[in-house]
């Protein structure tokens, strides 16, 4: 690790005032310290946000508010989340290991960096790590890479499970700036596609701090999270799907679907949701949804399997959620 100064402020204002351009906020550290050891990330200051009182889960009008430093394990365990936002519990429990979930935080998970091995290798060119240096992944060995939302500059996959469920749940990120202002951003606006600036992953700007996530009352009571991985546990997703559905009189009246293991950000495709809404479940309908999902997928060598796998998982998830 590059040497850094460590600060442990007691208030969000202090935290924001302490943080310079090269600073990083640390919650659990499970991803940040991993990458700092590899010197993929080299902040000059670490601002510890564990004493800012951001570790509460509060019911608020129209939903629930999850503090930035709520641990993944506590979020998964919360009785309200288990009952009403179960897809989120499921996604969290499918990720990492119990030890990691005991440290990893809500905000940290949203900001989790890609597992692309070339990004994690300071000897390899990577546009995300060193803008303009090139992309070693393209033409290299691919498995945990994206097929949706990619560009010629970057095919890095967003690795989170939690964020996939949150995307399906219409989560909003609550951000505070140094002036004390607060803004709320839908996840779709929060994440950025790589384009030709893959090093800029979110709309968060220096001097801003995620203080929490707001989840509205879920649009559906039928919630499923399914993840496929290379071993039975403790592995990142090859493909995952989060579904939040509502059925009335045998028809889908609301469908919200998000996908992991596919996109450069937690993926959602509203065309699929429009396709499903108002329809009675059927294999043909679900197959069509799968076609729509993968129609723009860029299946580079090594990633061809993601198309049939994602389509089969989507079909199985929809079948389960509509039964």
């Amino acid at each position: 690790m590059r040497p850094f100064d460590y600060h442990r402020p007691e208030t969000s204002n202090d935290a924001l005032n302490l943080a310079d351009e090269e600073a990083a906020f640390i919650g659990g550290g499970t991803n940040l310290l991993d990458l700092m050891k590899l010197e993929v990330m080299t902040p000059d200051q670490l601002v510890d946000i564990n004493r800012l009182g951001l570790d509460q889960i509060d019911e608020v009008s129209g939903g629930i508010r999850i503090g930035a430093t709520v641990r993944n394990s506590d979020l998964a365990d919360d009785a309200r989340i288990r009952r009403n936002w179960s897809v989120l519990s499921r996604a969290l429990l499918a990720g990492a290991s119990p030890q990691l979930r005991n440290r990893a935080t809500t905000a940290g998970n949203l900001l989790q960096r890609t597992r692309c091995p070339y990004f994690q290798d300071i000897d390899a060119p990577c546009n995300k790590r060193v803008p303009g240096s090139g992309c070693a992944a393209i033409g290299g060995e691919l498995r945990n890479h994206a097929v949706l939302g990619t560009s010629d500059h970057c095919i890095a996959l967003h690795p989170s499970d939690m964020a996939v469920a949150m995307r399906a749940l219409d989560a909003e990120v609550i951000v505070r700036d140094a002036g004390g202002g607060t803004r709320t951003t839908a996840l779709v606006e929060f994440y950025r596609l790589p384009g030709d600036t893959p090093h800029i992953e979110t709309t968060l700007t220096p001097g801003e701090l995620i203080t929490g996530v707001h989840l509205p009352v879920p649009a559906g009571d039928r919630q499923v999270y399914r993840k496929v991985r290379d071993r039975a546990s403790y592995a990142f997703a090859l493909v995952s799907t989060a579904a939040v559905l509502r059925m009335e009189n045998g028809k889908i009246v609301s469908a919200s679907l998000a996908f992991g293991g596919l996109g450069t950000m937690p993926w959602r495709n509203e065309e699929i949701e429009a396709l499903l809404t108002g329809e009675a479940p059927s294999n043909a309908l679900f197959d069509k949804a799968g076609e729509v999902l993968m129609k723009e997928a860029e299946l580079r060598e090594g990633l061809e399997f993601k198309k049939p796998l994602a389509q089969r998982v989507l079909k199985a998830v929809l079948t389960e959620a509509t039964q």
Partner: peptide, 9 residues
């Protein structure tokens, strides 16, 4: 993380 030795499960 990426070379998968079998886990308990």
């Amino acid at each position: 993380a990426e070379y998968h030795v079998p886990v308990n499960a």
